[in-house]
Design a protein around this nucleic acid. Structure first.
Lengths: 190, 190
DNA sequence: CGCCCAAGTCAACGGTTGATGACTTTTACA
DNA sequence: TGTAAAAGTCATCAACCGTTGACTTGGGCG
């Protein structure tokens, strides 16, 4: 076992804390708040299970921390508003971009049923998604348009998450992309 | 306690089985597959916990049975296609109609994270929602349009489920209804 | 070098879950 | 009416959960 990342530093509180945070992020995205156990998270971070409770106090506090460290999804809100539909549709339907900003949405929809996770979720969804989204959109009823587009994005992401294999053929997939772009654009435009 | 439905029949296998089924339906819709425990379901059905496993074999088999007994959501698919947007938007946003067909959607989105529930969910979603929906729509790419509209409906329902209190004022709510109707209509029209 | 606190480990706790087998009670039929 | 099977009850199991406290190990600093 000579695969120490930093030779002279085996014990590093900040690094292990970050490792736990990253592992928790992925496990929460894949299993949801209830489904992801602290032991699983600890194993994924190659860390003793007790350390998780030790560092973050409780599972719920760890969840809040994960939500706070989430990216702003600001990559969705860059570019012209006229391109919004096609741009976001491509980003959503291209599966392998999940690790960027959409994985954050997965945490939400997979943890929506947990009562303990509901309140942190609601708060984080506002600050990290709806508010910057509405600010990006601007114009009249920006909050309503942001919410509607956000709901559509969420629904599509969820549908993808449920159906592991795409049950649409290639032409249908292309048509879905085109149509999603159209509807998304209709949702955000004043 | 003289409220026996049939005076001479206290023990009725079919009736208790149905009671368990109804209770499971409500608990799954409210708590999701993982969140709803067999003991909770049994208590809601006023039945011993052991009977649930006894009647349905396992929790997953009970879940499948609940999905099979779900309504076809066919109330969404009645009426003219030109009205679809406004009609469905009203049905979704009017909270107290949940018990009809939308509660079935809640089961889906609250149980999407459970690996055990994923496969039954996928199958039931096809037969009970997407396929009749696509048949109702007709026209070219009916499956794509059905899926897109279904995803939008799901996202909006989920957003409502997450935000317990509506964080939109009355005018915003009215605008959301109008705009949702518009976008929904755009999603389903050829 | 030797101390001492931070970092990490280990075992265990109370609680809940899904599931099972043995037991008691009721119903229906001969 | 007597009896056997159906319907319901009870206690319990093994597994997992989040969390906690006591213990061991490591490295920076005097």
């Amino acid at each position: 076992m000579t695969d120490l990342p930093a030779p002279g530093r085996t014990r590093n509180a900040a690094a292990t804390r970050q490792a736990i945070l990253d592992a928790a992020h992925h496990r929460f995205a894949k299993e949801g708040y209830d489904g992801a156990s602290l032991r699983e998270i600890a194993a994924a971070a190659k860390v003793d299970a007790a350390l998780v409770s030790r560092y973050f106090g409780s599972k719920e506090e760890l969840f809040v921390e994960v939500l706070n460290c989430a990216p702003d999804s600001s990559d969705l809100f860059e570019g012209e508003l006229g391109d919004f539909g096609t741009r976001v549709a491509a980003k959503i339907l291209d599966d392998r971009d999940v690790d960027q900003g959409v994985e954050y949405l997965l945490i939400m929809l997979r943890s929506a049923s947990s009562p303990a996770a509901a309140e942190p979720l609601r708060r984080s969804m506002r600050t990290h998604f709806h508010d910057p989204f509405a600010a990006y959109l601007g114009g009249p009823h920006a909050d309503v348009r942001a919410r509607l587009a956000g709901d559509l994005i969420m629904g599509v992401c969820m549908s993808q998450a449920i159906s592991a294999d795409h049950d649409l053929d290639e032409e249908g997939q292309a048509n879905l992309r085109k149509r999603l772009a159209l509807v998304l654009q209709a949702a955000v435009e004043p």
